[in-house]
Simulated scan of single mutants.
Amino acid sequence: MNTQVEKLYRIAQKEERYIIGLMSGTSLDGLDVALCKLSGSGKETKLELVAFDTLVYQAAFRTYIRLVFSKRDIDLQILCGLNAYIGHVHGQLINDALAKWGVSADHVDLIASHGQTVYHAPQSLTHDHELPNSTLQIGDGDHIAHHTGLITISDFRQKHIAAGGEGAPLAAYGDYLLFSDQLENRILLNIGGISNFTFLPNGSSALQAYATDLGPGNTMMNQYMKQHYNQEMDSDAAIAQTGKPHPRLLAALEESEFLNLGFPKTTGPELFNLAYLTQKQQQSGTEDLSKADIMATLCHFSAQTIVKGIRRQTQGMDNVAVYISGGGLHNPLLIKLIKQGLPHYKITSFDALGLNPDAKEACLFAVLANETLVGQPDNVSTIKNSPAICMGKISFPY
Rank of each mutant, 00 (worst) to 15 (best):
G192I: 06
T297Q: 02
T278D: 15
L170F: 08
A388Y: 01
R157H: 02
N133P: 01
S381A: 07
L150V: 09
I194T: 03
K14R: 10
G30Q: 04
D142M: 01
D181S: 10
E257W: 06
K346R: 15
I335D: 10
A388V: 04
V307K: 08
T267F: 06
Q304L: 08
L170H: 07
P245T: 10
Q158W: 07
T152A: 02
A362D: 15
K14Q: 03
S349L: 07
G139V: 12
Q283D: 05
K308F: 14
A121G: 13
I138F: 05
S24T: 06
V33G: 05
M220I: 15
Q13S: 12
G262D: 10
S256A: 09
V33Q: 08
P269Q: 14
L177T: 06
D29Q: 08
F197C: 00
K43T: 11
N185Y: 00
E254L: 12
H246G: 06
G174W: 10
S134R: 04
I335M: 15
D155N: 13
N196Q: 11
N379R: 02
I310F: 02
Q304V: 06
N95L: 15
V322D: 03
L47D: 11
Y18C: 06
R248L: 12
F156I: 02
A296F: 12
L67T: 10
M221L: 14
S154N: 09
Q376V: 08
A211I: 00
L271K: 15
L259G: 00
G87R: 00
S124Y: 04
E254Q: 14
I324E: 11
S386R: 07
L79W: 00
Y224E: 00
D358Y: 12
L253T: 08
E16N: 14
F179C: 03
K393E: 05
C80S: 15
K37W: 04
I187D: 09
Q182M: 09
S386E: 07
K14D: 01
E6K: 12
D29L: 03
P169D: 02
S302W: 12
G30E: 05
D234M: 11
M225L: 07
E184L: 02
I74M: 09
H120M: 12
A237G: 12
H147D: 15
L355V: 14
N356D: 15
L277Q: 11
Q231D: 05
A34L: 02
D236N: 14
H246K: 12
S205A: 10
I94H: 13
G167C: 03
A84N: 06
G139Y: 00
Q92P: 00
E130I: 06
G30R: 03
S70F: 03
D213V: 04
C299D: 14
V118M: 03
N83Q: 08
T278N: 10
Y119A: 00
Y276M: 05
L334E: 01
R248P: 12
A51L: 01
L298A: 03
A60H: 09
P216G: 06
K265H: 06
L298C: 08
D53M: 04
S180Y: 10
K7Q: 14
A369T: 01
